[in-house]
Design a protein around this nucleic acid. Structure first.
Length: 847
RNA sequence: GGGCGAAUGGCGGAAUUGGUAGACGCGCUGGUCUUAGGAACCAGUAUUGAAAGAUGUGAAGGUUCGAGUCCUUUUUCGCCUACCA
């Protein structure tokens, strides 16, 4: 290979990026004559530099955006920054600077890194959630929601993260720990603002059914999170010396009421107030709070109870009286914080009953006429009621539950109830670097809205962030203000940053609009997002909040009726790498290790020290198994990186970073360039006539395959298709081909490559003077091969492949086979019992 | 405990949706060449067998002319979720 022939990706990629930038190639606006396509990847948090996860996410999205553009769609493909949040605040404290400065500098770095990837982004639409132009509108939406009664304030127990010193929503507590800090979450009573997301529980659940282009996995996760159940609230009369008349329980199994053997309350139940003086109860309550939150401790936690003086009466049988306990397994968060215990048909109740020697009465048996008893396992299956007085014989669960509820309702002993696990969304955060909540309090501590003409409520500039508590709380100049002669105190909490990301996709429709967050015209044109692409880690949090936000904006609003923000969702896998540790058990980055054979690894700066190679895990700073995209792009070029990140695994699965794989993609682009030179030579020098059938057929088939695989997100298969294309073309180019045929088909092939390696493709296209490019169409006629490979099976096993004319009929195939020695050997002289003929595919001969 | 998904060569993974299993890439083996490079090119590479052939998609059954693909049972792994009444 001649040195001059080498593909200089650096020059070419810079050239095209400059071209796209100067020509605003990817800038879009509403055009009602064109079909729109809104392609959106989850916008990044500006943490410092981009990582391989970003490269994968944005490459997947970019391939789609470029493909849709080539198909003639009006494509909206924007980028922005989820730029409020804790890390900025922490970094600011550490380095003694302003969160804004830190954030903006990160954005600058990451923007330039993303641009080097050659993404087809309309950079004129760039937004940043920490800018006043953005959060002004957010404050307005907050007031809109407040006016619709979807925002309220209440004091209750909250999940308190002692490290981040802030409140967390239920969804943000993972295994009892803060989702970001990892600190064990404490319980604390605080006054908080809430979005009434639970009002939309049913709509959010129902809406899932309409999302056909979402992964089922994500829909199931949201469904479980919303946690709908159908049951009954039952009222139990209480006999006690205390002034307690009755206790209500929520149950999904009222049909097992005759198996009632105790009633259990959460230690946080309102009635606990009557026992708070009791030393024994205090001890018990403390014991409960000690129960760990790890998987094992929950699974193995012993059922504990505190027996009260209360006696509960079974509403179905006044003579059935059972003790009332406080129990450690009853949660105040779910239902009514009280459960009726039926040990025979609930494992927890059985464990509890055994421990405290309570009565165990089975009321469901699997078979009507057989005896049944309960030992160590509760029976939760289907069957028939017995030991249940007038309910005996009812089929469980189909008719037993509804019949029991009907009876309870008729007798005023209970009411049917649909229950949801989804709780309202607590949105107050005791942080500085977030969107100020546009509320204030008067001298009587009554909340008032900040008048809309005073928006945005801007964050004050703070020279030095305090180390404890909420920084805004100590900013007296900002905190207090006078309005109409009255003194007010501002709300000093800021909004959960998940609010910022709950409507940014709407802002992209009208990024520069001043008076509202978006215009009806633009939102109605662009929304919903046709394809949303991001990590599955947002399956519940971000995606549920965004769906809620759309519901909330549509609620009591005649102008805006969109309910689902994301029509299609694609969740991509993570980028993984081997992990390395030295002899002292310290993590090492891939840069710090070296290997001759790929099996034994040694430390670079100490070649005698052997490295322990650990399992392949998703890239993370803490394990040091990261690869810096910037270095990789510098060494190999954006096209090669894009190609590699798509090549080794299906996009929805994890992909393993491999240096050899990266190298292979790099070499492939180089080889394509060499091929390109050959083709250009051929175009100049060829004068063959009427040849090129092979190329036409091949290209046509390639268009079919690449298009099909693009629609199905099989990007890794397309990379393989492109390798096949190279292997074919590199041989074919030595044969005679008519000039026009070569140009026309090569052009189509270059367009097929365009979404994947756009710089290379554009460079080659311009060298054959093509700048107006469209996605090529498949010619259905040419897909049909005249001569096909036809499989001959004997007793279902492939024995031979013969070449036949297309649409050959069975009789002719059988004629041919008679002459085929291979097949004759298998059939010998045996009688053919039957033949199965699949047109244009195979024949199966049964002997 | 509950839910979802996966299992195919040494590795990552294909398979027109019930019809030629292993495309394509990595790795490996042999060879060619020389401007010794991050080379390039050619041939080979599921197992077994000298060959014909036989076997082969986690395991065991089943449906079918035909199963990686559908059904039943089972094992292992991954992810999510959890005292949810």
């Amino acid at each position: 290979m001649n040195f001059v022939d080498r593909y200089n990706f650096k020059v070419v990629e810079e050239k095209w990026q400059k071209f796209w930038n100067q020509n605003k190639t990817f800038s879009t606006k509403v055009d009602k004559n064109k079909k729109k396509f809104y392609c959106l990847e989850m916008f990044p948090y500006p943490s410092g530099k981009i990582h391989m996860g970003h490269v994968r996410n944005y490459t997947i999205g970019d391939v789609l955006a470029r493909y849709k553009t080539l198909q003639g769609y009006n494509v909206l493909h924007p980028m922005g920054w989820d730029s409020f949040g804790m890390p900025a605040e922490n970094a600011a404290r550490q380095n003694n600077l302003d969160p804004k400065t830190w954030t903006e500098s990160n954005i600058k770095t990451m923007r330039s890194q993303l641009k080097k990837l050659g993404l087809s982004i309309d950079w004129d639409k760039e937004i940043s959630t920490c800018s006043e132009d953005y959060y002004k509108h957010q404050q307005e939406f907050f007031l809109d929601l407040y006016d619709k009664g979807l925002v309220y304030r209440k004091e209750n127990y909250v999940n308190w993260d002692p490290v981040d010193k802030t409140v967390l929503a239920n969804e943000q507590v993972v295994d009892g720990k803060g989702w970001r800090s990892g600190a064990t979450v404490e319980r604390k009573k605080l006054n908080q603002w809430f979005f009434n997301i639970s009002k939309f529980s049913e709509d959010l659940l129902q809406g899932l059914d309409s999302l056909e282009n979402w992964p089922n996995k994500v829909k199931v996760m949201q469904k479980n999170w919303i946690g709908k159940s159908f049951g009954c609230e039952v009222e139990f009369k209480i006999e006690s010396e205390k002034p307690i008349e009755s206790i209500k329980c929520y149950t999904t199994r009222p049909d097992t009421l005759f198996g009632f053997s105790f009633l259990a309350l959460s230690v946080d139940h309102p009635l606990a107030k009557y026992y708070e003086e009791d030393k024994e109860f205090q001890k018990f309550k403390e014991e409960c709070s000690k129960t760990g939150t790890t998987e094992e401790s929950i699974a193995s936690a012993e059922k504990l109870g505190f027996k009260t003086d209360m006696i509960a009466v079974n509403p179905l049988d006044k003579n059935m009286k059972v003790p009332v306990y406080f129990a450690n397994f009853v949660l105040m968060d779910y239902g009514l914080g009280a459960v009726f215990g039926c040990p025979a048909h609930d494992q927890r109740d059985l464990d509890f009953a055994k421990k405290y020697n309570l009565k165990i009465t089975p009321v469901v048996k699997p078979e009507k006429d057989k005896d049944f008893e309960i030992n160590n396992e509760a029976y939760t299956g289907e069957g028939y009621l017995y030991n249940s007085d007038f309910l005996d014989g009812l089929k469980v669960p189909s008719e037993s539950i509804i019949k029991t509820i009907e009876f309870l309702e008729k007798s005023n002993l209970g009411t049917r109830k649909t229950n949801y696990r989804l709780k309202d969304w607590g949105i107050s955060r005791q942080r500085y670097w977030g969107c100020p909540i546009p509320m204030a309090y008067d001298e009587n501590d009554q909340p008032i809205k900040i008048p809309r003409d005073m928006l945005p409520v801007k964050l004050p500039e703070i020279e030095k962030l305090s180390n404890t508590g909420n920084p805004l709380d100590s900013e007296d100049n900002w905190k207090f203000f006078i309005l109409d002669g009255k003194k007010y105190r501002r709300e000093t909490d800021t909004l959960d940053t998940f609010v910022d990301s709950s409507w940014y996709f709407l802002r992209f429709c009208s990024p520069h609009n001043l008076d509202r967050g978006f215009t009806q015209e633009e939102a109605n044109y662009w929304m919903p997002v046709d394809q949303y692409i991001g990590g599955v880690e947002h399956a519940i949090l971000h995606l549920l909040y965004s769906r809620f936000f759309m519901q909330a904006l549509s609620y009591k609003n005649d102008d805006f009726k969109l309910k689902e923000p994301f029509d299609g969702l694609f969740t991509q896998g993570m980028v993984c790498h081997e992990t390395y540790k030295d002899q002292k058990n310290a993590w090492l980055s891939p840069d710090e290790v070296t290997s001759e054979d790929g099996k034994e690894f040694y430390k670079k700066d100490n070649p005698s020290e052997k490295i322990i190679v650990g399992p392949t895990e998703s890239m993370s700073k803490s394990k040091k198994n990261t690869i810096d995209p910037e270095n990789i792009i510098k060494s190999y070029g954006a096209d090669s990186v894009r190609l590699f990140i798509l090549s080794d695994s299906p996009p929805e699965k994890d992909v393993q970073w491999s240096d050899q794989g990266m190298m292979a993609s790099f070499k492939f682009v180089q080889k394509l360039w060499t091929l390109n030179s050959k083709i250009l030579d051929k175009i100049k020098n060829t004068d063959e006539k009427n040849t090129g059938e092979n190329l036409i057929k091949f290209t046509n088939h390639l268009i079919y395959k690449v298009t099909y695989n693009l629609e199905k997100f099989n990007y890794n298969v397309i990379v393989a298709n492109l390798y096949e294309m190279y292997n074919f073309l590199v041989k074919e180019i030595d044969k005679p081909i008519k000039k026009e045929v070569l140009i026309e088909n090569y052009k189509k092939i270059l367009v097929l490559m365009n979404p994947f390696i756009p710089h290379f493709s554009n460079e080659c296209l311009s060298s054959i003077n093509e700048d107006q490019i469209n996605w090529p169409k498949v010619s259905k006629e040419d897909l049909v091969e005249e001569e096909i490979n036809f499989v001959v099976q004997v007793n279902g096993k492939k024995r031979s492949v013969i070449k036949v004319k297309r649409d050959i009929i069975e009789k002719d195939v059988l004629e041919k086979i008679k002459l085929n020695q291979e097949i004759k050997n298998f059939i010998k002289n045996q009688e053919i019992k039957k033949t199965i003929f699949v047109p244009n595919r195979l024949v199966n001969i049964i002997i």
